[in-house]
Design a protein around this nucleic acid. Sequence first.
DNA 1: AGAGTTCGGTACGCAAGCGTACTTTCAAAC
DNA 2: GTTTGAAAGTACGCTTGCGTACCGAACTCT
Lengths: 241, 241
Amino acid sequence: MASNGSDAGEFSYSRNGLLKALSPETRASVIADLELIDVPYRQVLYRPHDVAQYVYFPLSGVISIIAVTDDSSGVEVASVGREGMANVNLFLGADRAQCEAVCQAPAKVARMSGALLRKHTQNGGELSQLLLRYTSAYIGQLSQSVACNRLHSLDERCARWMLMMQDRAGDQFPITHEFLSAMLGVRRATVTVAAGLLQKAGLIRYTRGKMTVLDRAGLEQASCECYRTVRQMFDRLIPAQ
Amino acid sequence: MASNGSDAGEFSYSRNGLLKALSPETRASVIADLELIDVPYRQVLYRPHDVAQYVYFPLSGVISIIAVTDDSSGVEVASVGREGMANVNLFLGADRAQCEAVCQAPAKVARMSGALLRKHTQNGGELSQLLLRYTSAYIGQLSQSVACNRLHSLDERCARWMLMMQDRAGDQFPITHEFLSAMLGVRRATVTVAAGLLQKAGLIRYTRGKMTVLDRAGLEQASCECYRTVRQMFDRLIPAQ
DNA sequence: AGAGTTCGGTACGCAAGCGTACTTTCAAAC
DNA sequence: GTTTGAAAGTACGCTTGCGTACCGAACTCT
């Protein structure tokens, strides 16, 4: 609706849904302590057991949060885009990262150190309230993923993944079958079959790591309920952007 | 180690790890606003979309947190015992429950209403810090479960489940194959096979809904890494009880 | 004591996805 | 222009778990 050309000068931190939801005063104070960085495709922001240093507010692009198991396979447990923040655990007072965070689509990200974040959130306050609510939504996303990974077919989960990426990265984004298989926790060859079906159905198109979403409505049909469920929960908890 | 006979008079709220971790002053103030209830096996504390009313600190017993899908099947996403608190989302400011909470082993539970909880946690403070750290551990548990449900065999997950129950409910607890299958997100008949193997191996014994753990070390062998991983994370985040 | 219900064991054909491996196709590097 | 490597397609036998179904044993209620 309304254009936000007005804040183009200060680099539009408000493209991040959380920063946007703040009152102008709080936002200004928070923005003053943010640092803007470019994160290229596949860059790792942090790994399990790393000392937690920053929280990350994406202005564009996508960060995947991945649980890594002993045998070094892993599964995406959540993804974070403009709507959210990565490294929730730092906000919650943990000193170490539990998961791995990887850039899934080239991103502009505003980051804040733990020390500065504490300055803004100790004694409660607006930012604190907001991040607590985001944490609640993040927990919802995780809970849904537990059920999804157990109950839903790869075809459905694959469609869901495409929708989540499209929401955050647009109609086109980089992803190879190999990488996607690591996100979904299945073999590369299994992804090839599932993605092949979606392509045959005309819902997506891909070549050599370039994915294009063609038919969003079709994907929503093909996806499990989890996409809608999580989406609605976010819309309720982090209101109107 | 130390007996806590000293507070037997006030009903030993300190059996809950979170309450115990508080300073004596804060604890006294918190306890004053707690209400003690008995929760029988299989009682539902709350369902998805219910208005969130209470947080629950178990003094004994186990509460299972279950994600329910549209087709009304569900999967346990986490469990809460003496070490924790159920309904984290209320603390985080959400007004509705996302998951279902069911009593898995008869429990004594101290509950606190959302309004009173806010009184104790607004403007930060000791309880707030502690619950934030617990939230972090809870998120770790969820993340691990996402990976576990995707990557590990039923046999491993079944052993893990027994260990988690034993930690919280002791060597003996009620559980039918039917109910267990709902927790693990598989068929009842599949559970019968997996549990049968564990019994044949002498690790557990069961009849008609009464489960007994016989060989803890053996179960740890049979379980996936997830048990140990989650356990260690809790011990680090909610220190020494 | 008898009837009904719950719990657990078992079976059989089927589908999804795994492990492994071979092949083709395309793009970038030299 | 050729070489090299990455991406994607395909195949085959195998394992896990599903859907459905039937059965006996044990407990409960009357």
